[in-house]
Nucleic acid binder design. Sequence first.
DNA 1: CTGAAAGCGCTTACAG
DNA 2: CTGAAAGCGCTTACAG
Lengths: 368, 368
Amino acid sequence: MKSVPKPEPKRSRAPRKKAAKPAATEVEAKSGRAITINDIARLAGVSKKTVSRVLNQSPLIREGTRSRVQAVIEREKYQPDPQARGLAFRRSFLIGVVYDNPNAQYIVNSQQGALDALRGTDFELVVHPCDRRNPQFVASVRKFAERLKLWGVILLPPVSENNELTRELAAIGCRYVRVSYGPLDTPERVVATNDRVAVREAADYLVSLGHRCIGFISGPSGYMSAGERRTGFSEALQAHGLRLPAPYIVEGGYTYDSGVACANLLLSRRPRPTAIFASNDEMAAGVYRSAHKLGLSIPEDLSIIGFDDGPLAERMLPSLTTVRLPIRDIGRRAAERLIGAAIETPSLNPLVPHLVVRDSCARPRKSG
Amino acid sequence: MKSVPKPEPKRSRAPRKKAAKPAATEVEAKSGRAITINDIARLAGVSKKTVSRVLNQSPLIREGTRSRVQAVIEREKYQPDPQARGLAFRRSFLIGVVYDNPNAQYIVNSQQGALDALRGTDFELVVHPCDRRNPQFVASVRKFAERLKLWGVILLPPVSENNELTRELAAIGCRYVRVSYGPLDTPERVVATNDRVAVREAADYLVSLGHRCIGFISGPSGYMSAGERRTGFSEALQAHGLRLPAPYIVEGGYTYDSGVACANLLLSRRPRPTAIFASNDEMAAGVYRSAHKLGLSIPEDLSIIGFDDGPLAERMLPSLTTVRLPIRDIGRRAAERLIGAAIETPSLNPLVPHLVVRDSCARPRKSG
DNA sequence: CTGAAAGCGCTTACAG
DNA sequence: CTGAAAGCGCTTACAG
């Protein structure tokens, strides 16, 4: 078991200290040790407790004192030690991002968004990919949060849909925010996008082009996003007096390969659908391949819409019309929620994704 | 200036404590407070210093004592507090990943790799995207490393090529490992892939198919990877008695759009190249678009090879032949280096990427 | 091989 | 509004 790191064993009369591996540069900062709260206190002529009050923005401090201390802090470029603060606070200034998601762009964008919110604060982001199928999954995330005394945790879908996990987190007093697609928790604990509305936009668009026979590739049934998108799509078609018959709905796994397989199925139906909505871009890319193999040209013979607006979308030939998920905004809001910097009222400004129209859709050859 | 977080101001006679935002679950762990080194010491009937010795794998401890303490640690599921340890060590157990790179897959994979190495240890990964064009760039990364007392830093390209940054890091005693393409630092500080050799494989392949007139899209001249790939390609052609005339080399920016533009240029040359090597997949995708617009079919009229083997490659139509960069391995090695768990000898087992042959190359229509 | 004391850099009660 | 004391959970010298 590789466990805690092991500093060099000390030899009795060694020079003083021995650096681990990259010996050469293992020197203290030029100026000796870093400056601490005690230095600031001395320099400002106050107690360290007063400096602490300034750092923590306590209102119990005279403005004159505050600004004087603040000036010294800035002049000396003093940065409080997060570990010492954390130890005293009994909580760290670390935010965890927990995910089990194959979409790299999604992860990077939400990290970026969270960091947008954290910039200029003392918080940092610790990444924690995991495998939610692992029987130890919940226990290990719990240990992670507990050991690090995390300030809070951002749960990305589909991990965010795991109630057992959130129960554990609540039990150890760790805040969390779930990134998801509906009200699956108290409002303060969810940053949700309204996929149902977004998908309606896609359906309306296809109908407006004249499509009447449409295929639908859903996400895996365990995912909330899959359900939301499918419901939204059905409802929208119904509003136009259209139906989505069972043979024209197939369940994929949000992967490219499943997209190919689902499209193969859908395109073998008679009448053949003139348009296919895939519940994410990956699967939409699979539809391209299937259509290509069958000799169908896009968009003349088949219109396609995806969901995500990932890097793939613009690069497909023809470029893919898809629904853009504002992932970075989502990440930012989740982090704001955690550090209490949320400006928005939770229920207001719901994040609703929008359709990005490109070149993968056209009127069907023969209407009806 | 939003700075340090502010805990609730305390009211004089308040109940005891007031939770910040998500009040409800703000309880202590069921069992009261977490268990500490003192508890273990008492339970094992030794001093806390002895427990500390066990944690730090000190050799100065009798095996009997060690295993007895270890048993208590495991029974109680004791996890030492990293903040307290870090405070005493004057260094945290955090590894930073610093990058300024648009390739999401690259970032996620290297994070994943680093985490592979960190799993089971007490180290955690803190992400730090940044903008290397920002004049404050070096100073802000330095502050990041300094404030967090980072154990070490992983530098991803092209940030890894910035010597001013590494000088600063060395100055504050922060270890680093550069992920790069050549020996731009002492061996222990570099995890490099041999792109030159990898690209040779691609060139050989094109030549073996019969291509004689080949276009080359390079990366931006400031990047080490760009230089390595270009040099490797030229050399390989020379070995076959072929040349890469200036008009057939154009410099791109590693972006999709630049790929389109470069391909437009190359495909206007006469004689028109029968194959194009793009220095990354993004630009290769751009070549597809350009070829498509000109009515050239791939691979019949034009063979294309990319570099990265990102998610795009397999999804292109036809699927892209490209060079696979073992990013996850790279990330793992970098992290191992930092925590001193490196098994390999630096210079041995150089990571060399390999060609993944798919459907984007064929013999040219008319040889020569 | 083991331990008692002091300290890492902050904050929490508690006084004033 | 301000401060002196004690403590957060570990480790470093220093003794033995």
